[in-house]
Nucleic acid binder design. Structure first.
Lengths: 206, 206
DNA sequence: ACCACATACGAACGTTCGTGCTATTATCGC
DNA sequence: GCGATAATAGCACGAACGTTCGTATGTGGT
């Protein structure tokens, strides 16, 4: 059984992650966080010893959730298209999760931190590189399994796919375009078409 | 000749736009802005009568620059592919402009404001809708001119193209991937291939 | 049941935030 | 050049920021 301090700390990080998805890691404020959790500012602060440490731990907490909800389940799918599709669909669900009222916390943090050097940015960069790496590897394994074209460019696919995700995030959350999700799925399909192995048989599964 | 107040106000907005591209419209602070421009906080403040008004005027100022540097010159290109290519290339240059040290200020503001209701967000949404509208119209005119496929989905293309831009912004500014720009160009080419009119003659202009 | 220690609180620190006043200086039409 | 008006500075405010400190209360192993 975890000790009491560990429990409250988890609760803090969980709530902080949701708040950061809306307000960003800078807009995330210790006083505000303490109020919502009915803790004193100093009591909460004692768990982390600086705001920077809190921000980094929020990123790590979100990354652990992301692996649980998106990466790990998808890696149980067979290599090739099913796995890529799982990664994509689970990312969409992640971006719409109720525990992240502001959507993907990494997308929020990315544009917030891309110009602010420091340990928080460094951590985010590492996590984002790992995520892109998952996409690249997943394409590469599909190629190796003969399900994607041998000349498929995995890094190109990864950047393109992330673009589809970011465009959806933008069109949906800012512009509230009701068709954003349908378009994202079509774009994903078009991306897949570009790397799919073109065998002789004309069957294509919808 | 513009009055003195108008001149300093322009200077303020110009500098504020660059600052907002790095720190966001919230991170943009009146005191910081005044220090850099060697103005007093209250003297600067008097030009706008609230921070919210300043933020909105920063958005408008940036939009005017965007139209000057990206939209208007591109609309002088012939309809179809040249115009779309101009819009894309000029957006890339806009995102890398030295006057915007943090990159496209709208990309920054978008993820910052997508969860904060209010007049600033409303203004940003309007501007972004106009920009997407330019893309949609440009595709539509290409279709009408017979240079793009009649069944081309302009809204789909617009969302996809904006995804390419956002993915570039992300991969370049946060991950500092040196190949981000080359990949963005390849992705743009692939997008164009999807709507290009497939005439009988096999000539394709590079 | 006790005691060492982890956990939380309340108050205060110095800064910075946005926003009002009032006074002084600069501009510009006549 | 004068005089009305615009433009800027100076100062102060209440609130919120991250952070520190001393102190109280609770937990958990023995």
């Amino acid at each position: 059984m975890p000790t009491k301090g560990q429990r409250t700390r988890s609760a803090i990080l969980e709530h902080a992650t949701g708040l950061a998805s809306q307000l960003g890691l800078t807009g995330l404020t210790i006083g505000h966080l303490a109020d919502e959790l009915r803790l004193s500012k100093s009591g909460l602060f004692a768990h982390f010893r600086s705001k920077e440490a809190l921000q980094i731990q929020v990123l790590d907490h979100a990354a652990a959730k992301f692996v649980d909800q998106v990466v790990r389940p998808s890696l149980r799918e067979p290599r090739g298209e099913p796995r890529l599709r799982a990664l994509f669909e689970r990312w969409l669900a992640w971006d719409a999760a109720q525990s992240l009222p502001g959507g993907c916390v990494f997308a929020q943090a990315a544009s917030e931190l891309d110009d602010r050097a420091g340990p928080v940015r460094d951590r985010l960069v590492r996590l984002q590189r790992e995520w892109i790496g998952v996409l690249v590897t997943s394409v590469g394994l599909g190629v190796a399994a003969g399900r994607f074209r041998p000349d498929a460019d995995a890094e190109q696919f990864a950047q393109d796919l992330y673009g589809v995700m970011l465009a959806f995030h933008h069109a949906w959350r800012l512009l509230t375009d009701p068709q954003a999700e349908a378009r994202a799925r079509r774009a994903f399909g078009a991306l897949l078409d570009g790397i799919r192995q073109t065998t002789g048989d004309p069957e294509d599964r919808p």
